[in-house]
Design a binder for these strands. Structure first.
Lengths: 223, 223, 223, 223
DNA sequence: GATGAATGAGCGTTCATTCAT
DNA sequence: AATGAATGAACGCTCATTCAT
């Protein structure tokens, strides 16, 4: 599985980087170091200087790979959604029932923690970054420009895949994308709230109910 | 209505500011100038230097009122939720039916644009800021510290008020806060997606369906 | 004794202050607060803002009394030397032998710690300030200007008084002032070195030998 | 001689700088520019901004070499003492008589002006800086921290060298370090007093007597 | 006389970025 | 291709100081 995942990276839009970070040892260190550092200090405090120190290289070298820290975040989130799409494909292959496929998709979206590593990428930390920081990848003034260059392609495709399952179940449903993006972003936020602003949730520390809550929402929406 | 709104500001936690911006002409200019500037250039580009130029004052003067730009954002969002809570109270007073009250609450949350002014505060722009930037007020490493000092009190209270209505309708419902916060944050995101990442929505430019979508979600959840 | 000391303050040159700090309650708080604060954080970190907070007043109020933090230091050191001069007079009055008077003077200069209070002024802390910071009162580019306005009068007078005793003992001695100022500044420095840079001293923590060392220097110089 | 001096710089503790100023042209300009500027406006008025303008570079570049202006002062004084130690070694080599060696050492310490240049460093100005500002390098709250990191090593070693000569002459003398540091600091102060506060000296403008005064002190102390 | 409000100026620092090697 | 050196620009912050009350 991991071997295939690595090949996924190749598909990330070239506009996300100056030089493919998968193409060299240093590039890979930039990616793993970024995940480590953003996870530790947050995207706001993250800078190329700190990254250069972390990976024992220089700022100039990082610039060879990424034009800005924004692009790094876009790269990481795109990588995440690429990998999620693969996992979805893997989980739904050869399953005929769209209901079952949707169920597995929701399971995937709302699963509490990821405990895998791929190509030295700590996926648990990447998941956490997506939860805490991924919105900052599109809540920016340059969103339209980035979008035009395909920066959010992977995310939109992931949402699309599940929307398609929904339309299989209920072809005349009007809001398949809204339903999926609501569940995806909601699941991230609820997990974050559960940890930091529990008054906005009803998890009582048990994050399993996030899955139950969104499962129910989706099922009732399609009834 | 506006007179009462102004008195609402007094209730914002003192931890949000160094000196109450409502207490002086300069303080008010800082607030209105911040709204104007954040709306124009985005919170990421917003700095006290630019704000000082905008309002024809100095950074040092701004620091008298706010410790950091983060606190300004917290102040603005708290002000927004305070004002939303008041509007909610106003809209639901003397309405017996909890269903009707909930309906109006959802209407309030999902209404497309706000076209009012209060005390020189351009509420349309503030609404836009809440949509585009408010998540950056809590998706920060200092979230727990800020929360401990009451920075998110107004937001949590607004969510609570509506959760209470939900519990009136369906007392044994397990996820009232999650439902409300999902709708609130979802409504913001869908509006943003509708404008910038339409593939993640099904609005086709018509933002009315955001209301329809979340109405249906809530109604079905409480059936 | 203390009553008389308070009257000494009156003699401090008016050029040291804008308004006599002894003339009001606030003025006295500024003096005692400055001693407290400089002792705690050092003269370099000392600012009128911090002082104003310490004494629960405002910067503008402090400016009524002192033109700058430099002047505060000059005031405190002048006050110190004024008080030392008084103590010297007190200790040598009615003593005929100039040798005995000199002995007592050296004792006074080299005594390890001062454990008295006068008019709420913590003299131990003031002594420490003189040791650690008083050189910064004259090692400045404005030294000549300050000197012209009498800022160092008290210090010079104290040195003079002892020089006079020396000349009584050995009228043809060529370097009475150099001897005294060497002992005074040396005693301060050695005390400081003893606490922070012991390799520059031979005190082994016991500061009594500072007295022995300088006593011997002086006695041999006058032989 | 100068060639050897340049190699001395290498021995300055790395904790004094971020990047060795001897290692590049810019680094050397920072050192010479600092001497020029501190000499002109004093250490208190000296800032990295003014230095950057002086040497036609930028603050950011200066920061590559020195963490703070304090460190620059520590660097300059350490350089000075390193160079003084070398001169001492040079002056006393092959001299058997410790009395003669001591005599030369005192000559070195109390000599009126230095009129040499080494590696574009104006040693006369550096000497003046040491006289006027070097105490500010250790009369700081961070003295213990700096000392722990070896900031005063060169000074202490210079004092030590001469203390050793003293002990050769009078092995049971109790205060060799105190005697040396008193003479060193005293010589600086008396020179300063002679120029700015003559009432504290007996030089009448002729600074030669500083040497005579301290010579006598030392000779009598060791009798 | 004392204070609260406001400001001009400048400092220390960091960042993003470029250039030469 | 990767790095080391250097820089322009701006940020966050604090200080000393003034003015109006």
């Amino acid at each position: 599985m991991l071997d295939i995942l690595q090949s996924l990276n190749i598909h990330l839009t070239e506009s996300l980087y100056q030089k493919d970070p998968q193409s060299s040892k240093l590039g890979k260190k930039i990616v793993t170091g970024s995940i480590e550092l953003i996870h530790n200090i947050g995207f706001d405090q993250f800078t190329f200087r700190k990254l250069a120190i972390e990976i024992e290289s220089t700022e100039a070298s990082v610039y060879r790979y990424f034009e800005s820290k924004q692009k790094v975040l876009l790269y990481l989130t795109s990588w995440y959604w690429s990998w999620m799409e693969y996992r979805l494909a893997f989980l739904t292959i050869n399953i005929n029932s769209p209901e079952e496929r949707l169920k597995r998709a929701i399971q995937l979206i709302t699963e509490p923690t990821i405990d895998e590593n791929s190509d030295n990428v700590d996926l648990g930390k990447l998941h956490q970054i997506v939860i805490e920081e991924s919105m900052k990848a599109y809540l920016i003034k340059e969103v339209d420009h980035e979008n035009k260059h395909g920066a959010y392609f992977q995310y939109k495709q992931f949402v699309n895949r599940i929307s398609d399952i929904i339309l299989e179940i209920k072809p005349n449903y009007n809001y398949p994308h809204m339903l999926v993006s609501t569940v995806v972003e909601g699941a991230h936020l609820q997990r974050y709230f559960s940890q930091h602003l529990p008054n906005l949730t009803d998890t009582n520390g048990s994050e399993n109910c996030i899955h139950d809550f969104y499962s129910e929402i989706v099922l009732k929406a399609l009834k």
